[in-house]
Amino acid sequence: MTARTFLIHGLIAGLLAGFAAFLVAYQIGEPPVEAAIALEEAGAPADAHTHESPEAGHSHDDEGGTEVSRQNQSTWGLLTGTVAIGTALGGLVALAAAGVVGRIGRLRPSQSTALVALIGFVAVALVPFLKYPASPPATGNPDTIGDRTSYYFAFLAISLLVAIAATVLGTRLLPGLGGYRTVLVAVGSYLVVLVLAAELMPAVKELGEFPAQTLWEFRRASLLTIATMWATIGVVLVGLVGRAHEKVAVENARRELAASL
């Protein structure tokens, strides 16, 4: 198997993941998004925002300009977003899987690929969500978008780098410590560093009086969308990698047999 094979498999998995995530996002994510936008347009939330476009989706600045209809935002726009992110993540996960194949103990390619997808989901999606959870429209202050974006991606980068470091550490410790203790040390050190980082990094507290029910529904839908994306990437990629590896193994066995005759 080559890096190219992995990448192609990852792109296929990511594309499918984008469509799967769209279905979940459209079905259960759009209702709370619509509810939040309705609140925004009614001017309901406590904090005053500078959103003054009643018909268009929204425009952050008052420059006017483009107006994409809600109809387009919630369908083609949403699909564009999930497919783009899905494909990008699928390819990255696959290349990471290509990097670790044969390098994590005696794990088979499908097993090490599954491990990469799992670590990716936790480090890139789940843990950042716990510190800086997704928030529905009308909850953020436009003036702090720069800070909020930096915090989010800084925390994501810390989480990803520490996860990679912990995984490398794990592969070094594995021969000496055995599987159980290696996992304890690797996961433990990741958690200690991330809890510390989460404590030290600034909190974002901009929800104001936003209705709890809508917030819960939105965040649950968001997490399900993200989890669907990662699960699809993982399941499809593991399947494709497993199949490709078996093909190579069968081919090798046949060649060896032919050579021995």
Binding site: A21, A25, G29, E30, V33, H49, H51, A56, G57, H58, S59, H60, D61, E63, G65, T66, E67, V68, N72, Q73, S74, W76, G77, L78, T80, G81, T82, A84, I85, A125, P128, F129, Y132, P133, A134, S135, P136, P137, A138, T139, G140, P142, I145, R148, T149, Y151, Y152, F218, A221, S222, L223, T225, I226, M229
Partner: peptide, 21 residues
């Protein structure tokens, strides 16, 4: 500059967990 890209991918940005408005 502008808001066209932002508006087009807006719902995905919120639902995929990225900071927005």
């Amino acid at each position: 500059a502008g808001t066209a890209i932002h508006e087009w991918v807006h719902d995905g940005r919120h639902l995929l967990g990225y900071p927005c408005h």
